[in-house]
Design a protein around this nucleic acid. Structure first.
Lengths: 114, 114
DNA sequence: AAAACTAACTGGTGATGCAAGGTAGTTATT
DNA sequence: AATAACTACCTTGCATCACCAGTTAGTTTT
């Protein structure tokens, strides 16, 4: 099992909501889109439970729409509550990521431009 | 349950090793030290399992030492394998943290520059 | 001796990413 | 028309791991 799987714990929800906020997407599309922005391969078996949980909590809203080619697609939209939740998780993530990155960036050559 | 708990998944090990690398510490001390560097309250019940797991995997080595005042303390040292592991997790963390921070830092209508 | 403190350890629980499997509609191939 | 291939959604079960609550044991204080 990839180490990465654990590193995404808790942030995946926020990542999904952030993508949905930019532009409504359907699940199948999402798993591919996340790769595009630099996140490791996330299978659809991973994101569907996330989408269902987010929907159950009222953070996103799903809408079935016909597709010009292929089966119908369920597009998800971010709700106001979802936006609030996204803001909160984002704040906490950034708060934690800062000291952690600082701590882990030891190791000599930091040519990383922050 | 705090949202934070999930955000630390997978990184806690690295954080602990990073602190141990700087300077050997004992468990009880560690839980307080992590607060100092900006991480949320991490109880000793959380870090002892981490320490034991790291030790079991050969990433750190524990050494019982008498204390001038109070019970003996078990100081932990980072092994060569631990250093390698720390490097690897750090690299993966930094690789993931970058796009995630980018994604979550969306503050308003930001023209994407990718 | 009893209480208070330091320090290490353990058991159980919950959250959640993930792999694998399942269902069904659409398009392409034969 | 029938089969295969693809798109798209959903479910089940599992492994990892941070956390809470509790335990043990030594040291210091009362």
């Amino acid at each position: 099992m990839a180490l990465r799987s654990q590193l995404l714990k808790g942030v995946l929800d926020a990542c999904v909501m952030a993508v949905v906020e930019e532009q409504p997407v359907y699940g199948y599309e999402l798993s591919q889109k996340l790769q595009g922005i630099g996140l490791p391969d996330i299978s659809d078996g991973t994101i569907y439970p996330v989408l269902l949980r987010l929907q159950k909590n009222g953070f996103i809203r799903g809408e079935m729409r016909p597709s010009a080619s292929g089966p119908n697609r369920k597009y998800y939209f971010l709700t106001d509550e979802g936006k609030a939740e996204l803001d909160q998780i984002s704040a906490e993530w950034l708060e934690i990521a800062k000291p952690v990155s600082q701590l882990l960036k030891r190791g000599g050559e930091n040519e990383e431009n922050s």
